[in-house]
């Protein structure tokens, strides 16, 4: 895959975050007459970092929990929990994040925590399902050989099963992270710092320039994040005939 479009996009995003003023002429036609063109109530770079922080803060624990759960339900001791785990992660995915916010604000208060929880729940399903599919799709002869060679269950997991399942698990984390990146914008309705703030400010003040810069920034970050995962995935699967389930 060609890398230069992503590189160009990265340069544009960085330029916009460091010197938003340079892009003012492009966005000016969208701003209401005389109104501000570039969001000025907070630094865009710090909002972006806070936004990425929200995604990482939700996706790192969501991935760890989902992979661990995916591994657990493949073990003899955990097999009985597969349907239950499917229902729970599926519920996390179908339950609207806005509703999670509405339900948790009374308990957790305004700010970061309800958003993290909503994103965490939302991110479980893709990672869990991919982990299950990856482990179930391992070539039976390889699994059999690992047992026959005398690897203990733990050695099989760390040395054979997880390395072979890694590309598909990474796919799941990538999908969940990209979704999480765009979903994180709703955190701003409960006052979590992030790029949603720019979009909501644009909506309330009817400033289309704000909406456009917030929305485009999130979209560009999502593309760059997906590309970054592709880069990691290529590194991991080079020289390997890893079966994809």
């Amino acid at each position: 895959m060609k890398r230069w479009p992503a590189a160009v996009l990265l340069v544009l995003v960085l330029a916009f975050l460091i010197r938003p003023g340079l892009f003012a002429p492009l966005l000016a036609p969208l701003a209401p007459g005389g109104g501000p063109v570039i969001y000025d109530r907070a630094n865009l770079l710090s909002l972006t970092l806070a936004h990425l922080g929200l995604v990482a803060g939700a996706m790192v624990p969501a991935s760890l929990v989902a992979v661990a759960l995916g591994v657990f339900v493949q073990r003899p001791a955990g097999a009985a929990f597969l349907p239950l785990s499917r229902s729970l992660t599926g519920f996390g995915q179908t339950f609207p994040p806005v509703a999670v916010l509405a339900l948790t604000v009374p308990v957790l208060g305004f700010g970061t925590w309800p958003t993290l929880l909503a994103l965490f729940l939302y991110g479980l399903l893709p990672v869990f399902e991919n982990t299950v599919a990856a482990l179930q799709g391992l070539p039976p002869s390889v699994v059999e050989a690992a047992r026959g060679m005398g690897l203990t269950p733990r050695q099989r997991l760390w040395q054979v099963e997880l390395p072979l399942a890694r590309p598909l698990i990474l796919d799941g984390i990538r999908t969940a992270s990209v979704i999480s990146l765009s979903t994180a914008t709703i955190g701003s309705v409960v006052a979590a710092r992030g790029l949603g703030e720019v979009i909501i400010a644009g909506l309330t003040s009817q400033n289309l320039a704000f909406v456009a810069q917030g929305g485009l920034l999130v979209a560009a970050l999502a593309i760059l994040l997906a590309q970054a995962f592709a880069l990691v995935g290529d590194g991991a699967s080079r020289n390997r005939a890893t079966p994809r389930a």
């Binding site: 070539p139 002869s141 390889v142 059999e144 050989a145 690992a146 047992r147 026959g148 060679m149 005398g150 054979v160 390395p163 072979l164 390997r240 005939a241 890893t242 079966p243």
Partner: peptide, 16 residues
């Protein structure tokens, strides 16, 4: 099993 060699039809080599 570490004391007994085991060869299977699809060889089961570790692809990674």
């Amino acid at each position: 099993r570490r004391r007994i060699g085991y060869v299977i039809q699809d060889h089961g080599l570790f692809p990674h």
